[in-house]
Write a protein that binds this DNA or RNA. Structure first.
Length: 596
RNA sequence: CGGGGCGUGGCGCAGUUUGGUAGCGCGGGUGCUUUGGGAGCACUAGGUCGCAGGUUCGAAUCCUGUCGCCCCGACCA
């Protein structure tokens, strides 16, 4: 391809609406054009990158016997109603774009494809003899994100690879999960990006085990915790660990003390020389449960710990066996609306009585669902609110206040915590961009969508399912976030739009021009993805553009063309060599075939 | 949805406080010079100042409404 014909427009100024480096570089390099919030056009250079990533994904999945397909983007509401996700995804979270056709039938634009594929699999796969099967598609998906941001990182229309596997038993699913884990590791390695695989929360999609593949980068939206011995890594939403900093409170006779105006842990500690870890903090939340039930939640946690709302939400779901649509700390406004303003905020104890909820309306349940984090449950002697304004209890314990509620892990793991598997290992934190996620779904979708097969005993049974996603467009941008410098992008060779760019320094010099063209022709003949900058621009402009768009290799046909010599420069290392042009070609062919 | 900010040629911005014929840089076109790290000079094209009302002799500027975009938060298979 010739740069003069490439429709390439690069920007010298940083676009005002791009915040992070990768987004800025994509826009400056002319890779993407925003059409509206969270919706982008992939321009020719970008599309080449996407196709290269896609090819790697296809090759590695095909090696594992996966089948490629293409599924519809428009999904009938019925199958989403069947899986129980229509309401939550349209009205509730509102993440699904939806519309009505001319007959008034409701349709949604697919944010993911569990429903469609499970429905199809249920009809086609009738016998255990046809299993296992893994089917995938790479296509545009839609999510009406609450806040699209960072270009392709969180866009509303994006390209994703989704694979779904169907099995006759759990063992087989687990094997596939391991196999896919292996495929993913290979895919990301081939794409030239560094990833960390972390234990993850499976979120609204449900299922047993799940693992995310994170590109480590400061701009990442997720916080991940990694043990110093590298044996454990998890998303903070999921991470398990042992907190440090516990200061025991001696066991003494329990009493009530006046704590006027000391409604926060900080004030309480400052005025009475307590340590936060000696206090049991009580937090009141409201969970919106499916079927529009508002469930008040009362949690107790050690005063120096933070609540992990994802863990709590999962515990609530598990306990009630219903989906939690939303979870929020109860605000004073909500209490006033519900006539509950006498709840002694700032002085709550774990034994706050349910009778406070007697007057609650607006679908509120009139009891507290209670959870105690194990950090609080394991305290033998502690300080807590007395459920009366301006008073706390000290030296109290669970047997005297009467322990109510489930003891669970709902604390937020943080850097500095001790790893569960080895007390000498500590957790450190990094930020990550999620580009892949694999799940053992189990039978949730096959059950709800009536996707059954006949097992060896002749009985009908729902499939065991796995699902495995890769954000293709997000991966492309994450690769830049991880690989760039002041001058521009440093594409890993395997996913670069072109492998090498031939720069003719001065188009008016016949020798340079002829040499550049000859090298270009030769490289194309050798099957190298070569680009030639044949624009009648000054050399500096072409160098700047080549660096900005991040082509891994650059060959300059310039001053030394008279002697048949060219400069060969590696974009990432900046190492430059003056070589006879034939040697430069040989060198390039060997370097490129080495790393693709 | 809450908080904050911004809409002025393709891009980045000034002008708005204090109303008076719309400007700068980059980019585009033509010509001359220059030619290895985003060249110089000259000329030139390109804008209903997001949109709709209103106030005024006169609105980019003031008022009302509305739409869009960005940031923080909530939220986020």
């Amino acid at each position: 391809m010739r740069v003069s014909r490439l429709m390439l427009v690069t920007l010298r100024d940083t676009p005002a609406d791009a915040e992070i480096a990768s987004h800025q570089l994509l826009v400056r390099g002319g890779f993407i054009k925003r059409v509206t919030s969270g919706i982008y056009a992939y321009m020719p250079l970008m599309w080449r990158v996407i196709k290269k990533i896609t090819a790697i994904v296809q090759q590695e999945l095909d090696k594992k016997g996966c089948l490629e397909s293409l599924l519809p983007q428009l999904h009938p509401a019925e199958i989403w109603e069947q899986s129980g996700r229509w309401k939550g995804y349209t009205a509730g979270e509102g993440i699904m774009f939806h519309l009505k056709d001319r007959q008034g039938r409701e349709l949604g634009l697919g944010p993911t494809h569990e429903e469609v594929i499970t429905k199809i699999a249920g009809e086609i796969l009738q016998s255990y003899k046809q299993l296992p099967v893994t089917i995938y598609q790479i296509q545009t998906k839609f999510r009406d994100e609450i806040r699209p941001r960072f270009g392709l990182m969180r866009s509303r229309e994006f390209i994703m690879k989704d694979a779904y596997s169907f099995h006759s038993n759990e063992e087989d699913l687990k094997n596939k999960y391991v196999e896919m884990n292996d495929a993913y590791t290979k895919i990301f390695k081939r794409c030239g990006i560094t990833t960390v695989a972390v234990d993850a929360d499976s979120g609204a999609i449900g299922g047993a085990e799940s693992r995310e593949f994170m590109v480590t980068a400061d701009a990442g939206e997720d916080l991940i915790l990694i043990s110093t011995d590298n044996k454990y890594a998890a998303n903070q939403e999921k991470a398990l660990s042992i907190p440090i900093g516990k200061e025991c409170l001696p066991k003494k006779e329990s009493k009530t003390i006046d704590t006027v105006g000391q409604s926060s842990i900080k004030e309480l500690c400052q005025n009475n020389s307590f340590a936060p870890s000696q206090i049991v903090k009580v937090i009141l939340l409201l969970a919106l449960i499916e079927d529009n039930i508002q469930q008040p939640i009362l949690i107790s946690i050690r005063g120096d710990q933070e609540l992990n709302e994802v863990k709590l939400s999962n515990e609530i779901s598990k306990y009630l066996e219903k989906n939690v649509i939303n979870l929020k700390i109860i605000s004073k406004d909500q209490l006033e609306i519900n006539g509950l303003n006498e709840i002694p905020f700032g002085y709550l104890g774990p034994d706050l009585e349910d009778s406070y909820l007697d007057k609650a309306n607006n679908n509120w349940e009139n009891y507290f669902l209670r959870f105690i984090d194990h950090t609080a449950a394991s305290l033998d002697s502690f300080i807590c609110g007395s459920n009366v304004y301006n008073q706390h209890r000290i030296y109290t314990n669970w047997s005297s206040i009467g322990r109510q509620g489930e003891v669970v892990d709902i604390r937020k793991a943080i850097a500095g915590d001790i790893a569960l598997h080895d007390k000498n290992a500590k957790l450190i934190e990094k930020r990550g961009i999620e580009i892949g996620h694999i799940f053992q779904l189990g039978r949730k979708y096959s059950k709800s969508l009536n996707a059954f097969f006949t097992n060896e005993s002749g009985l009908q049974e729902p499939f065991w399912m796995g699902c495995y996603g890769i954000g293709i467009s997000r991966l492309a941008q994450a690769a830049i976030e991880q690989n760039h410098d002041k001058e521009g992008i440093l594409w890993p060779l395997a996913i670069a739009p072109f492998e090498i760019i031939v720069v003719i320094a001065n188009m008016k010099d016949e020798k340079q021009r002829a040499l550049g063209e000859e090298i270009y022709e030769e490289l194309i003949k050798e099957g190298i993805d070569a680009l030639i900058d044949d624009r009648d621009e000054r050399a500096g402009v072409k160098f700047k553009d080549a660096d900005l768009i991040g082509i891994p290799w650059k060959v300059i046909a310039g001053r030394d063309s008279t002697e048949g010599k060219v400069e060969l420069i590696n974009r990432a290392t900046k190492i430059s060599r003056l070589l006879q042009f034939k040697d430069a070609i040989k060198e390039l062919i060997s370097e490129i075939s080495k790393s693709r």
